[in-house]
């Protein structure tokens, strides 16, 4: 085994373990925002590392593999952000231990908007 194959193998194993941890997080976390957090971070690095590992094993594919990595790094946070905002606008509020007024700074924006709509 050459050095490239060893690096590629290590990257592939790490990536698959992080992908597994991401979906375990989705299964275990108590509410949707925490699920989005665990899902986004772990699957982004997991997929990037696994795909880069394949790039080390087949160096002639490297350009297209870089395109896929850049696309994943760009699209994954965007979709999770869109989803989180949509969930909040649908009034599925996050699970909060303690005082919601203090710990949830975004709620005031939404309640103010509702009051304006009622007035007009």
């Amino acid at each position: 085994m050459s050095i490239m194959e060893i690096i590629g193998g290590i990257l592939i194993i790490t990536g698959s373990i992080f992908l597994f941890l991401g979906s375990l997080g989705i299964l275990r976390m108590p509410d949707i925002y925490n699920r989005i957090q665990a899902g986004t971070k772990a699957t982004t690095l997991g997929a990037m590392s696994l795909i880069l590992g394949v790039g080390f094993l087949e160096p002639s594919w490297l350009l297209k593999i870089l395109i896929i990595i850049i696309f994943i790094a760009y699209s994954n946070p965007l979709s999770s952000h869109a989803l989180a905002r949509a969930m909040y606008k649908r009034k599925w509020y996050p699970l909060i231990k303690g005082d919601p007024e203090k710990m949830d700074a975004y709620r005031e924006v939404n309640t103010n908007k509702e009051k304006e709509e009622v007035k007009s």
Binding site: F18, L21, G22, L24, G25, R28, M29, P30, D31, Y33, N34, Q37, A38, K41, A42, T44, L45, G46, P94, L95, I96, K97, G98, M103, D104, A105, Y106, R107
Partner: peptide, 25 residues
């Protein structure tokens, strides 16, 4: 990103789920 992944791994693998969520601005 690498730090955050180990953070997620630690939280997910701890049986008691050590979280204290909230929204800040």
């Amino acid at each position: 990103l690498i730090k955050s992944n180990f953070d997620v791994a630690r939280r997910v693998l701890t049986p008691s789920l050590p979280i204290n969520p909230g929204i800040v601005k």
